[in-house]
Structures are given as C-alpha cells and as structure tokens.
C-alpha cells in the first residue's frame, strides 16, 4: 500500500486513491511505423526489478496523471512530477543517483 504525493494537488495519496499506468515516457508509434517499432511501443513495457519510472493517475482526487520514480524492490520513492514532461527532472535524477549512482536516464551520460 504505497503513498505517492500528487505533484498537482500536493495530496499524499493512498494507493487506493491512485491508479497505476505502467511505464512512463513512452513514444507513441502510429501509422507508418515499422512492425518492430509498433510492437515495441504496444507490448514491450518495462517492469524492472529496481528503479522504475511509472505513470500514475490521481484518480480519486484531482484526476491528473503524474510520473513517479521509485524502486520496485525497496519501494523507495525518489519523487513525483507532472506527466507533461519528456524526462525526469534534475532533482529527481539527483535523488535517484544518491541511491543508484550508476543509474542514467535511458542510458544517457
């Protein structure tokens, strides 16, 4: 039973007020995309043991989607941020690196 703080309304929401939406920062592939690219987008979702950046919706609350960076093993939460982002913000990356020094966003340096 997680608690995640909604970055929109500031509520430390109980898991029963939230809905999980799986891997965050997907790139949509539409008509014209290759079969491999489309297959990857539609079906190949990350579900790692360890650091995960996930989509959540404050469904029993303000209704907004947000992202959470958390460790699926220890359940440590490194931060939440609005879904209208293309990558985790710097302060959250720093928080992640304090625990996972080797971690980089999508393999970037």
């Amino acid at each position: 039973m997680l608690i995640l703080t909604c970055p929109y309304c500031g509520v430390a929401a109980d898991e029963t007020e939230l809905a999980c939406g799986g891997e965050a920062h997907l790139t949509r592939h539409g008509p014209g995309s290759s079969d491999d690219a489309f297959h990857g987008y539609l079906f190949s979702r990350k579900n790692p043991r360890g650091l995960h950046v996930e989509r959540w919706r404050h469904v029993q609350g303000c209704g907004k989607w947000f992202h959470a960076a958390r460790d699926t093993v220890t359940l440590q939460v490194f931060g939440t941020y609005p879904a209208q982002s293309h990558e985790p913000p710097e302060d959250i990356v720093r928080a992640i690196r304090r625990r996972h020094p080797e971690w980089t966003w999508k393999g970037a340096a």
């Binding site: 939406g21 949509r28 989509r55 919706r57 469904v59 209704g63 907004k64 989607w65 879904a83 209208q84």
Partner: peptide, 13 residues
Amino acid sequence: HAHMEEWLQTEWW
C-alpha cells in the same frame, strides 16, 4: 472519460 483525459494529459497535452 478517463481514456480521453489520459490522451489529453499524457500525449497531446
């Protein structure tokens, strides 16, 4: 409604 909000908030914001 949720489907619409999801696309509006997370893809075509």
